Simulated scan of single mutants.
Amino acid sequence: MSFQLKLVWKIVLLIFAVNIAIMSLLYTNQLVRKLAIEEETRVNQWTAAIQRLIDSEDEDVTFLMEVSRTSSNNIPIIMTDEDGNILNFLNLDSARTNDPVYLRDELQGMKLENDPIVIEYQPGKKNYVYYHNSTLLTQLKYYPYYQIGIISLFLLVSYLAFNASRRSEQNRVWVGLAKETAHQLGTPISSLIAWIDLFKEEGQSPTKEMLAEMEKDIERLRLVSERFSKIGSTPILEDKNVKLLIDQSVAYMSSRASHKVKMEVHADVLHNCFSRVNVQLFDWVLENLIKNAIDAMEGKGQIDFVLTETKKHIFIDISDTGKGIPSSKISEVFKPGFTTKKRGWGLGLSLAKRIIEDYHRGKIVVKESTPGKGTTFRITLRKNL
């Protein structure tokens, strides 16, 4: 997964979580307000009923607590006189109601939570009804905070997971880059070592032809260095003959590969073979595909380049007779660090995909692959019309 895509996912998850939190808070707060109004209304109805009973029958209202018990419906209630003495209570913890300290603490909490409701049982004489919010209402008040905590935990875990994934991918990239560096440098260095060994064994001075080949290897080393310097920068694209570039790359690699590896280019029906490419980077892609094919064939087999065209595009099919790629792995071959062997396919195909698709606005895919028979990669480039 690319860095840009991961960043988009982070933003999407953050927006999603924030929206959930906001909607949850709004809905829960609205629900809490409705329940609070409903409970206050019920307590008011209860006290109003007591007030009516007082006005019509008896001055003593303590027994009316029992009469109106069902109206309170689990709302904790304490009634006091004007001096704050507790006269009666409802819906408290029955195991602790004999404890005066518990009752006083509950009363103090009720005074902080809601304003008292006044009952006037004689002219100038009043009782006060205090009440807590119901357990359900109290839980609902704290519910949004629990939910925000869970969402925050979810965001934290997601953030840590993304970071761990990014670090893991970075590690794979560094490992792949190290392998790819060795892979890129291997061919010209091995060739130069072979020339030096040849001179030592035969004790002769190099001929012009030998020096020309050595110069090609040195130029290849310079080219590798230039390739890596272009990673991360915007390459300069030039109008080039794609078939000619392929012919040059195949000629260089053929002369340095095993004689058991045959390479052929087929482009008999191609008319317009020009596309805007960066020569160094495009050659890098070709070299990687050739080396991967040689590795897959274990140094023996056939590599074919087949060029076809449409009105607007050039298609380059690179086929080998190697081991092939399992169908379950085809979707992973362009990921950094993917490999089926000790060398090759570490970072090369990932960079090849970036070079073709990001820099050249083309396409590279595994066209087909059959285990035991071989693999065909397809590069699609836009024609320079």
Rank of each mutant, 00 (worst) to 15 (best):
I218S: 01
A194I: 04
I196M: 10
I193K: 14
S229Y: 12
E201Y: 00
S233P: 01
V224E: 06
K200N: 12
I218G: 01
N241A: 15
D197H: 12
E219K: 14
V224L: 03
K230E: 10
S229H: 13
P206W: 03
L198M: 10
S225P: 02
T234M: 08
S225Y: 10
P206Q: 06
K230I: 05
P206D: 04
E226W: 05
E202T: 13
K240L: 15
S205E: 12
V224W: 04
Q204F: 03
S205R: 13
R220Y: 07
D247M: 06
L192M: 08
A212V: 02
F199Y: 15
D239V: 09
D239I: 09
L192V: 04
L237E: 10
E209L: 10
T207Y: 03
Q204H: 11
K216P: 00
G203H: 02
S205L: 14
V224P: 04
F228L: 09
E215G: 06
S233G: 06
K200E: 11
P235A: 00
F228P: 01
L211S: 08
P235S: 04
E215D: 14
S233T: 15
K240H: 07
Q204W: 04
A194M: 08
E219N: 14
E219I: 04
S229I: 02
T234Y: 07
L223V: 00
